[in-house]
Amino acid sequence: MIQRTPIADAVTYAIMVLGFILLIGPFLVIIAGASQTMQQVNAIPFSFLPENQFLANATQAWQRADLGTAMTNSLIMAVLVTAGKVALSSLTAFAIVFFRSPLKHLFFWSVFITLMLPLEVRVVPTYAVAADLLQPVKFILSLFGGIQIGVDWNLLNSYTGLTLPLIATATGTFLYRQFFMTLPDELAEAARMDGSGPVRFFFDMLLPLSRTNMLALTTIMFVYGWNQYLWPLLMVTDPSYKTVMMSLRSLLPADNGTPDWNVTLAGSLLIMLPPLVVVGVLQRWFVRGLVATDK
């Protein structure tokens, strides 16, 4: 604080409280609504006071949307996306930063371009590839000699299909690249003088040093994986593979049915909870990952 200005301080607090009402208010409505009975939640005007019905509503939502299965699937998907991303992007960044090789720029740019086009604009052919993974291979084979293969490798309704296309983007690679660039050149020199090869250097020095980055990347990738919507919606037709974002829809009260929004809100709250906990508890790492990957 630079100078003592009571009026400006009062305005500052007023702004911060207004921000609280705008950004946290919706959470308070959800919490209040999720713990009320159906009569209370539909009352006009809405009461912001939480009641004691949350467990009953949550149990009902859990059964209605089969949240047990959906939560398990989303958890598996989020963990696989996170693990795949953390592992693969560190390997690629290592290849880009620490080797003198003519291919380095090719690698860099082919990864960099993926940042430009998100899944949404190329979702149709990506779906086609997932429905028949060997399609590109078949095409190349038919170019060279007209060999036809009749095997289809279908990724629909599988964890592989749910996660692989989401790992194929560049975010994590840049986080690692940025970090590797900040390391002093002497580090690799010293390792080389001590007789360490690149593989040993990577596993024994770089990975332990990048623990902070890994944690930051883990938090943002977990939230990213958990919150996936469009891709699972297209990929999954078998209910045993459905994710939480898909089960949101079954939580909605039917158009002419009973308006039990208390159950809907309780279910949505359960679905929102895991990423909310990650961002709340690991906020330092999350913010770090956010600021570092996007620059």
């Binding site: 690629t92 880009i96 690698f107 990506t126 997932a130 590109p136 194929a168 983007t169």
Partner: peptide
């Protein structure tokens, strides 16, 4: 080192 990610990108980005 770069191959796993490049293959994924080839299949799920460049091909599409």
């Amino acid at each position: 080192f770069a191959l796993p990610q490049l293959l994924l990108i080839l299949f799920f980005f460049y091909w599409p």
